[in-house]
Simulated assay, not measured.
Amino acid sequence: MTEGVKRRYDSTRRHEQALENRRRIVAAACVLFAERGYGRTTLADIAASAGVAVETVYAAFKNKPTLLHRAWDVTVGGDDTDIQLLDRPELRDVFDEPDLPTRLRKLAAVNTRLMRRTTALRRAVETAAATDEAAAAMLAEIDRQRLESMAAHARAAETTGRLRVSEVECRDVLWTTTDGSLWHGLVQVRGWTDERYARWLGELWVGQLT
């Protein structure tokens, strides 16, 4: 009986340690990919930053593209829980808003927080995509997923009866203005606050779409 309890305890501890190692590896990858660039960051660099052996990184993620995918998912979601972005409470609140102008302003606020989290990593992927096949595939997947998300917002907007453009045009306007380039230019280059940017983006969408 005692040995059985000990084995379960050991197994639980190993599982918890493995999860903690994965979190540390992903956190280190997010920082290093954004700061150094995807191409210039090695798995050995990530292991050293995470305080684990490089073999631990390989055992957990196999290769750098797989780790990039996980780093992106965690960066987008803001945590390591496996909940799709559209199913998270802040976006459910957007979809539940019946008034379209108010909904677009709420979406702009959520998107601004998302840009704060993701833009540095996306720009690193964009840079690497010019020469790295895995990064190029990742960038294409990022934009495909974002297009699907914006299509969901456009479909929901269409049902309100307040949309003055087509559903497709709404999707395309939202998609084009949510890749991080506007946020980077106005906030990080021109010095706008996130609050000012979110207000501006919300009014842009309301003016163009409703």
Rank of each mutant, 00 (worst) to 15 (best):
E167Q: 14
L209S: 04
R146Q: 11
N63Y: 02
D179L: 07
E141D: 11
E35H: 11
D73W: 01
T81H: 04
A129V: 10
A152K: 15
W175D: 14
V94R: 11
D10P: 00
G4M: 14
K6G: 00
E167H: 06
V173C: 00
L67M: 10
T193N: 03
G37V: 13
E141H: 05
L163Q: 05
R122D: 01
P98M: 12
L139R: 06
S166G: 14
F61H: 06
W175G: 02
N111P: 00
T193L: 04
G37R: 12
E203D: 07
N21E: 15
V76W: 03
E169D: 14
T75D: 02
A128P: 02
S11I: 09
L139S: 04
D82P: 06
A151E: 13
Y9K: 02
E195D: 05
V125I: 11
V26K: 05
A140G: 09
D99R: 10
R164S: 04
E20H: 15
E20Y: 09
I25W: 12
T118Q: 12
G185N: 11
T159S: 10
L182G: 14
L209N: 09
S11W: 08
P89E: 11
M150Q: 01
Q145V: 04
R103P: 00
G202L: 05
H69G: 12
L121R: 02
G4P: 13
L86N: 02
S149M: 08
E195M: 01
V173L: 08
A60D: 10
V173M: 03
T75N: 04
V31Q: 11
V189R: 14
T210P: 01
G180V: 06
D194Q: 10
D93Q: 00
P89T: 11
T2D: 11
A120Y: 00
G77D: 12
R88H: 03
H15M: 11
E16G: 01
R13V: 10
T127R: 14
T75I: 12
K64N: 10
T119W: 00
V5D: 08
Q84F: 05
H15C: 00
R144G: 04
A44Q: 15
G77E: 08
I142Y: 15
R113C: 02
T210E: 13
E203A: 03
T176I: 02
R164A: 06
E126N: 02
D10A: 05
E35V: 09
C30Y: 03
A34H: 07
D73E: 10
Y9T: 09
R171D: 01
R23L: 11
L182Q: 10
D194F: 03
T131K: 06
E195R: 05
H184K: 09
E169V: 14
V187N: 08
L114A: 06
T81C: 05
V76F: 02
Q145G: 01
R13P: 01
D73S: 08
L91T: 06
L107I: 00
F33D: 11
